[in-house]
Design a protein around this nucleic acid. Structure first.
Length: 243
DNA sequence: CACCAGGTAGATC
DNA sequence: GATCTACATGGT
């Protein structure tokens, strides 16, 4: 993949690959201009975040890959998360090309010995989580459609039965595998933004999610993305807007 | 050596 | 429910 002059080029992909995979993966059927338009004017903080977040898209990622990746993300930093995901692929994924591996199927991951996974992935205690989660996934395959049809509270509850999956990771799984867009994953950054900009005090997860649901409605997931990326780079600017 | 990182599990009040 | 702490690992 390469990006140049506003064009993303995907090596070795033909029109069929585009139709069958990439179109959905990059969520190209969704009109983000329309979404931004609907989110605009709700409040000045979000407006600033929308301005900054040109080009943000929520990817339709594979459910199992999203599942495992976000278990690895908990209490971890982004460079290391990336490293852990890559090493998981290298450890038990299928060889695609020289030094390139697919993300493993549940069957492949579940078959790895815990010691080897820990030695190669370096994700500490999270390795136990992803092994157990993979085994559960293998025994009772969760379907995107099933999760999509469930009431939100039920889907969240179902996901939280997996080890290493709590409220934040559950929402990330639903959002980043393209199952639901009305969720609002609350990580440290989003918590910071919401507390400083909207609450002006510390707020609980439940409070923040209730606020997001009331404030952003079915577009909460998109709002979360715009706020997250803006907060990470411009927390000071947002802070100065309070007054 | 303390503290942090896209949190969660388990215990406790 | 709300709160507290340990948790592997690698970086400041």
């Amino acid at each position: 993949m390469s990006f140049c002059d506003g064009t993303l080029k995907i090596d070795g992909a033909d029109r069929r690959d585009f139709q069958n995979f990439w179109y959905s993966y990059f969520d190209l059927g969704r009109d983000y201009g329309k979404i931004k338009k609907r989110l605009r004017g709700i409040d000045p903080f979000l407006d600033a975040a929308l301005e900054h977040g040109a080009g943000i898209r929520i990817l339709n990622q594979d459910l199992f890959e999203t599942f495992i990746s976000f278990i690895l993300s908990s209490n971890n930093n982004i460079p290391r998360i990336r490293h852990c995901v890559e090493q998981t692929a290298a450890c038990c994924g299928s060889l695609l090309a020289e030094g390139q591996y697919s993300f493993p199927e549940a069957r492949q991951l579940a078959a790895v010995a815990a010691e080897r996974l820990k030695r190669e992935v370096r994700a500490g205690y999270r390795c136990d989580y992803i092994l157990q989660a993979a085994a559960m996934f293998l025994a009772y395959p969760v379907q995107r459609e099933t999760l999509a049809e469930m009431p939100l509270a039920e889907a969240r509850k179902a996901l939280c039965t997996y080890p290493g999956v709590g409220p934040k990771v559950a929402d990330c799984i639903l959002l980043f595998s393209g199952i639901r867009q009305d969720v609002f994953p609350v990580d440290t950054w989003v918590k910071k933004v919401m507390e400083e900009l909207y609450f002006r005090r510390s707020a609980s997860l439940r409070e923040i999610q209730a606020f997001a649901a009331a404030h952003f409605g079915e577009l909460a997931g998109f709002a979360q993305q715009y706020l997250f990326y803006y907060a990470r780079e411009h927390m000071e600017t947002l802070r100065n807007m309070i007054r």
